[in-house]
């Protein structure tokens, strides 16, 4: 059984994203997004797993619909301004296009497909879904210069939904997707101001997700009770795992605080006090459910679990070094700014 075709589709997936973020006309944007969509479907599919097929189908339908709305938006725009090969946008089509791209990222009022799709994927696909699939739509939202009220509404919706819906979940995939919805809210706030800020946020968010999902996929964990099995045999991994979640929640000594800090600073300098305050307080709810995940790890209790999935002591130098660099990143970057 050869999975060689997956390499091909990874390449086209990346090419699609790159085409859409670097094209000069809306048609190019659309083509890139379609390429990206058509190449992730075979990546998701796994003939032994029906859930992934279902997920890929759902994903396809939603994304195709969003692409159609995007197509409609830029056609309206072309009719209005009569310049087909241009990124200029009228007011109405700009809102339509932004909305369609929000559907593609899974920002909050349009998020309903996102946890459902995530539930069916394996962890590596979930990682692609949480990180790489956000690049193209969000970059293009940055180009549309849509009105601030729309974006602010979506920010608030995303932050609130991401916080509230994650509370009662036990499936880690669902939790990661709701946390991603929350972070999408923050990233929207970042891209409202500067591209660099968004890039930093996205990079750090992706790195944190990579660290967490790497562990989850190595230990084959998909719900909270299974975490006990990991924590029993691997105290070091357990500590790293715990700190990674604190980092994702944006607690200071870890790198996750850095993008939040920068975003809040820029928001305050642009006089968005209320939005910033709301975002930062509602994000505490996500911190609460991260804390629920880490609770069996942080209490240092070593009761045995019936779900004994991984017996072996697990050691990976790569994983350890990635984690240590990530977690201490804030201290090093602060030092780099202040002492050099």
């Amino acid at each position: 059984m050869s999975y060689l075709y997956k390499n091909l589709f990874i390449i086209t997936l990346m090419t699609g994203t790159l085409i859409s973020i670097s094209s000069e006309s809306w048609l190019g944007v659309w083509i890139g997004l379609e390429m990206n969509l058509l190449s992730i479907i075979p990546l998701m599919n796994n003939s032994k797993d029906l859930k992934s097929t279902e997920a890929s189908l759902k994903y396809f339908i939603v994304q195709a619909m969003a692409s159609m709305i995007l197509l409609m938006g830029f056609l309206i725009n072309t009719i209005k301004i009569n310049l087909p090969n241009n990124l200029l946008l009228e007011n109405l089509p700009s809102s339509i296009i932004t909305t369609s791209l929000m559907i593609k990222t899974g920002a909050a009022p349009f998020h309903f497909w996102f946890p459902e799709v995530m539930e069916g994927l394996n962890w590596m696909n979930a990682l692609i879904m949480l990180t790489w699939q956000k690049i193209a739509p969000m970059t293009i939202i940055m180009y549309t210069h849509s009105n601030e009220i729309l974006i602010t509404t979506v920010i608030m919706f995303s932050v609130i939904t991401g916080g509230l819906m994650g509370i009662n979940q036990t499936s880690l995939r669902k939790i990661m997707s709701y946390s991603s919805i929350n972070h999408i809210g923050w990233m929207m706030a970042a891209l409202l101001f500067t591209e660099t800020l968004w890039k930093w946020y996205f990079l750090i968010y992706s790195a944190m997700n990579m660290a967490i999902i790497w562990m989850l996929s190595k230990f084959n964990i998909s719900s909270i009770p299974q975490l006990m099995a990991m924590s029993k045999n691997n105290p070091k991994m357990k500590t790293f795992f715990m700190f990674n979640f604190f980092s994702l929640g944006g607690l200071p000594p870890f790198i996750g605080f850095l993008p939040k800090w920068l975003t809040i600073q820029v928001m305050v300098l642009n006089e968005m006090y209320l939005t910033g305050a709301m975002m930062i307080i509602i994000t505490l709810i996500t911190l609460y459910f991260y804390m629920r995940i880490t609770m069996p790890l942080i209490t240092l209790s070593s009761s045995s679990s019936s779900l004994n999935l991984s017996n072996q002591q697990f050691k990976s130098k790569n994983m350890m070094s990635l984690n240590s660099i990530l977690l201490t990143g804030l201290l090093f970057s602060t030092m780099a700014f202040n002492w050099i």
């Binding site: 800090w261 809040i264 600073q265 305050v268 300098l269 006090y273 910033g276 305050a277 930062i280 307080i281 505490l284 911190l287 609460y288 804390m291 942080i298």
Partner: peptide
């Protein structure tokens, strides 16, 4: 632990916003 963490964080995050206001 949850009380400790969330009582403090709930009030300390507005301070973050106030800090950037003070910078201004």
């Amino acid at each position: 632990g949850a009380y400790l963490l969330f009582y403090t964080l709930f009030a300390s995050l507005p301070m973050l916003i106030a800090i950037f206001y003070l910078v201004d």
